[in-house]
Amino acid sequence: MTDRGPGLPALRHQLVAAVLGLAAPGLQDDAFDPAPLLATLFTEACDADDPVPWIGRTLRTGEEAALTADLGAALRTLRTTLPPDPRPADHLASPAWPAVTTAAARLARALVANDHHAR
């Protein structure tokens, strides 16, 4: 792997934590609020709509960017199923939520593996 980052390690940490939270259905209970995790993915640490410019900043590889884009697509689909002012439970009850956790799990695996193998 060619290590191209992260240039923003604190934001990388936020990104990894957000993706792991979305990928862990066991943590998604009545107290689970996806809003801060979604903010991390779309504004603070990455742009899941256009992740390629984040390579070398919070993303390490093109694979991570592609998986982030997949997660962004799943989240955009989720948004179409939610009411105008969704509660956390609305996210979890949506038929689109399993695709979010699946995409997040794939990205989480890549993020953690790439961090483990970084030089």
Rank of each mutant, 00 (worst) to 15 (best):
D90V: 03
A73R: 15
L20G: 14
A105P: 03
P34E: 09
T81H: 08
A93Q: 12
L20R: 15
P51K: 08
G26K: 08
R106E: 12
C46H: 10
R119F: 09
R60G: 11
P83C: 02
H116W: 09
L78Q: 06
T58R: 06
P86W: 04
R4P: 05
R12Q: 10
A103P: 09
C46P: 00
D115S: 14
A35K: 13
D29E: 11
Q28K: 12
P95T: 04
V16W: 00
T80Y: 00
L111T: 12
A99E: 09
A108W: 05
V19Q: 08
T77R: 10
A39T: 12
D85N: 10
G56I: 01
A23P: 06
A108K: 09
S94C: 01
A110T: 14
R87K: 11
H116R: 15
R60S: 05
L92D: 05
R109G: 14
A105K: 07
D85A: 15
R119M: 07
A69C: 06
G26L: 11
A96Y: 08
D70F: 00
T81E: 05
T2N: 12
A17E: 14
R12S: 05
V52W: 08
V100S: 14
L67C: 02
G7R: 08
G5E: 04
A31V: 07
R119E: 15
T40V: 15
R12F: 08
P95I: 05
T2I: 14
G21L: 15
V112K: 13
R119G: 13
E44F: 04
D33T: 15
L78C: 02
H91L: 07
H91V: 07
A17M: 13
G7V: 03
V100L: 11
L27P: 00
G26P: 05
P36H: 13
L11W: 03
F42M: 02
V100G: 12
Q28W: 03
D3M: 11
A74H: 06
L92K: 04
D30S: 15
A18Y: 04
T58A: 03
T2D: 13
G21Y: 01
R106V: 00
P9A: 10
V112I: 15
P9E: 05
R106P: 01
T101F: 02
L11F: 07
F42C: 01
A99Q: 10
L15G: 10
D115W: 00
D70A: 13
A35F: 12
A65V: 00
L27R: 14
P95M: 05
D33P: 08
L37V: 05
L75E: 03
T2M: 10
Q28C: 10
A113V: 04
S94P: 04
A96Q: 06
I55W: 06
R4S: 13
L11K: 15
R76C: 02
P9N: 03
A96R: 09
P88G: 06
T80L: 03
A99T: 09
L15Q: 07
V112N: 09
L82M: 00
L8E: 14
D30Y: 07
P51F: 09
T2Y: 13
E63T: 15
M1G: 13
P51C: 04
D3C: 08
P25C: 14
D85G: 07
A65G: 04
G72W: 00
G72M: 03
D50Y: 07
A73F: 11
E64F: 02
R79W: 02
D30K: 10
L107N: 12
R79L: 11
H13R: 15
P88A: 11
